Each structure stands twice: as C-alpha cells, then as structure tokens.
Amino acid sequence: MSAPERIPPRSVTPAELLTRGELTVRGRIREASNAALYCTVAYEGGEAACIYKPVAGERPLWDFPDGTLARREVAAYEVGEATGWTLVPPTVLRDGPYGEGMCQLWVEAVPEAELLALVDAEEPGPGWKAVGFADVGEGRTALLVHADDERLRRLAVLDAVINNADRKGGHLLPAGDGCLYGIDHGVTFHAEDKLRTLLWGWAGEPLTPDAVTALGALQEQLKDGAALATRLAGLITPGEIDATRARVDALLASGTHPEPGGQWPAIPWPPV
C-alpha cells in the first residue's frame, strides 16, 4: 500500500495574514504623530511584522474628519494597487487589541543611494530634479533636490491622484525587493486641493506613457459599480470619491504632472 500523498502547506497571502492573523503588540513607534504600534501577525503557519494604527489613537485634525485616517490609509493602498504598480505595502482595516484600525505589512528599509538632498547649487546635477530653495539657517539657502528615479515618479503620480497632503522623505522606504514603498497616507483624499509633497521635480512635465496607461486603468476602475469604487465607498465619502475621479480625469486631460496651486503650502517641512 502506497503512502498517502503529502499535501504541501497552503501559502498564506499578505492580505489573509493581516486580516485574519493573531495580532500581537510588540512596541510603540514613538516618533509617529498618531498611535502607531509595532506588531507581529500570525496565521496558519505564516508570520510577519506589521504596523497597527488604531482609530482610537488618532489625533484630531482641523481639516480632516475625526476617526477617518485609518480608512484613508487603506484607500491609498487600494488605489495604488489599481494602478498596477507596487507602491504601498499591503494594508487592511481590522479589529485589534485597541479596536478598529489600519494594519500594514512592515517594510524593512534597506540602505540605498540618496533619494533626497540639500545641495549648495543653483541647479540640480545630473540624475536629480529640483524642488525649490530652502532656508538652512544663518541666512543661507540650499537647493532641495530629489532623485530622478522612476519609482519616485510613480509615487508622484499616485500622490496627485490621492491628494496626499504630507509626502515627506521619511515616508519613502526602499526595500530589498527593489521596490520603493510609500507609507503614512492618513491625510489623503480630501475633496479640496491639498497636495503637499517633496516630489515636485516633474511639475509641468509630460506624464510618461506608463503613467497614462496606469491612469486610464484607474479611470475605468473608479466608475460607479466597479470593484474599486465599491471598496472605496466603505472607506471614504462619495464626495471624496468624486474628487478622486476628477483628479484622474484632469491628469489625463492635461497629460502633465500637476504644478503647485498656490493656495496651500506645497512642500512639507521639515522634509523628513
């Protein structure tokens, strides 16, 4: 009699792990402006590190409704995935030890060439894009630049779509898989223009064909009744979904990266 065939263990997806896994708090990230807890999550033999941000730990903001930041983080992941680009770590909404919150796969940043710099020059050097001049003290200014990196450029497009009000250098995580992940998307999707980012280096330049294709796919997925639009309806308001559609339409109509509007501080400071 032959031995029974051994069935290999099923591979657990990041979404399953984050959604169904047992969440154990290991510590608190004290630098975060809202409660951010470093955790592990385990499910059916799979285990990973993650970050859990409970709604109960969100500080009130004057321009965003209370208790909505976790949902906005999940919405940013959903929209990022819909572009076909890998831009935001897997992120879900779930219950945890301190109530409902956002749970995101932890990304361990790896050393990489600089993405941002302050340089004593009037123009950016080869491989860099200028953001603007910054006061560095004692009456001196320096030119803030970012790398002319396709991964950053994709994040700049995503930020324009989700209306990111706080894209800082510390929110950019280069990972061992070669991807560059953006994190901390709680202040996004406002219906009013609030784009505030360090990634202005391509402002006014034509979108790449890759970006036009991604935005076209996103435009289809944001239509009423489409799966993405249905998921977003549980995360942000109808008015915010309409505003997201309008931003995608405007990007495709102009064919260019947006420029600062002048009604809102365009660059977060400090840049990290």
Rank of each mutant, 00 (worst) to 15 (best):
A3G: 03
P9N: 00
R10Y: 05
P14G: 12
L17F: 05
L23Q: 07
T24L: 01
V25T: 11
G27K: 12
R28G: 04
E31M: 00
A32F: 05
N34I: 09
A36E: 01
V41N: 12
V41A: 08
A42R: 09
A42D: 12
G45Y: 04
G45T: 03
A49M: 08
A49T: 14
I51Q: 01
Y52A: 13
K53F: 09
E58M: 03
E58R: 11
P60Y: 08
L61N: 14
D63I: 00
F64I: 05
V74R: 14
V74F: 11
A76F: 03
V79M: 05
G80M: 07
T83G: 01
G84M: 10
W85G: 06
W85T: 09
P90T: 15
P90I: 14
G96I: 03
G96F: 11
G96S: 12
E112C: 13
A113I: 00
L115S: 02
A117D: 13
V119M: 05
A121R: 14
E122F: 00
E123I: 13
P124W: 07
G125M: 08
G127N: 03
G127L: 04
A130V: 13
A130W: 07
G132W: 00
G137H: 08
L143S: 07
D148H: 02
D149L: 13
R151N: 06
L152A: 09
V157P: 02
L158Q: 10
V161G: 02
N163E: 00
D166V: 13
K168F: 09
G169S: 04
G170N: 12
L172S: 09
C179H: 15
D184T: 04
D193T: 00
D193H: 13
R196G: 05
L198Q: 04
G201Q: 00
W202N: 01
L207H: 08
T208F: 07
D210G: 03
A211Y: 01
A217N: 15
Q219V: 04
E220V: 03
E220A: 14
L222R: 00
A227N: 04
L228F: 01
I236L: 06
I236E: 01
T237I: 00
G239I: 06
A243R: 13
R245H: 04
R247W: 10
D249S: 11
A250K: 02
L251T: 10
L251Q: 08
S254H: 11
S254G: 15
G261R: 15
G261A: 14
G262S: 08
Q263I: 05
P265D: 02
P268D: 09
P270F: 09
V272R: 13
